[in-house]
Design a protein around this nucleic acid. Structure first.
Lengths: 151, 151
DNA sequence: CACTATTTTTGCCTTTAGCAAAGAAAATGT
DNA sequence: ACATTTTCTTTGCTAAAGGCAAAAATAGTG
């Protein structure tokens, strides 16, 4: 087997691992600062204003079980951040969408979370930022499709 | 403020978020396949054979609390993967190190985890792998030092 | 209409994690 | 020398995160 591949894989494994720990810590801090549980923040971050989602959709895109999602949505619903209505076409489905309050919060959240990253990125060159983008983009694609195959 | 920075920050925020979810799923699968709890896998992955660590060292490098680490180590100790001895120089300190069994397992773990990434990386070019490495390396550095400042 | 499949929820359990207090040992002041 | 403070780890308790299996509700099908 390719020796160069092995080296690169090893190095990338290590780095990704460290990045993961750091980003988890970062997410936890951010969520806490905004009075949210980490799971709630993660969930809110993927729902777009105006759209509606089934429990399953949210579960798969968050890589969590439907039952877990039910609980997360319970919390968001209790805080009046999302609405939960039965779909009329198929009443087995729930339609989860942001309330006005939810939309406002999510807007602020996305803005501030991007600002946080802007703060980190502001002292490096545009080219380096592109390198980060390209590298992570490639990696994300690989891991994502690996998951699809091996699930 | 720099409009280009804002765009790049936004894109990187999004990508990093997605990468994180995927990598967490990947870690969870891998740990499960090897009969380990995720926390145990994460801990084992950072201890090197021959070296010994204090609880605090492990806690800070895993971004966890000391008390959490005590529990994780309890588990590894129960499975005879690590030794825990009181330091002779300063008996407040614990010295955590891998047992022979632990070393064997960690060796296998690192090998197989790198192989898993090798599997993902095998179909792309050497140059793209370097792009991934460089991008993630840059990002890891930024997040890491951001955390130091904001903790 | 009985049966099967799908979607979500509920009950229950495990895992992950931190905080605050306790315990144990070292360092420090008087 | 001994009381006080500091440091490192552990323990008790609690919350948050997450999954599995069964139940509930609805849709589709023979």
């Amino acid at each position: 087997m390719d020796i160069k591949l092995k080296q690169q894989a090893s190095a990338i494994t290590e780095l990704t691992f460290d990045l993961l720990r750091c980003c988890e810590a970062k997410e936890k801090m951010f969520a806490k600062d905004h009075g949210l549980k980490v799971a709630e923040f993660r969930c809110l971050r993927i729902v777009e204003a105006g759209k509606s989602y089934s429990v399953q959709e949210l579960a798969t895109s968050m890589h969590l079980s439907p039952s877990r999602l039910t609980r997360i949505i319970d919390g968001l619903f209790a805080e009046k951040l999302v609405d939960r209505v039965q779909s009329i076409e198929d009443r087995r489905f729930a339609k989860i969408s942001l309330t006005n309050k939810g939309q406002t919060l999510v807007g602020k959240l996305k803005e501030e979370y991007a600002d946080l990253h802007g703060e980190m990125l502001k002292d490096i060159s545009v080219e380096d930022r592109d390198k980060i983008y390209n590298g992570i983009s490639l990696m994300q694609g690989l891991v994502s499709s690996w998951l699809v195959k091996n699930a």
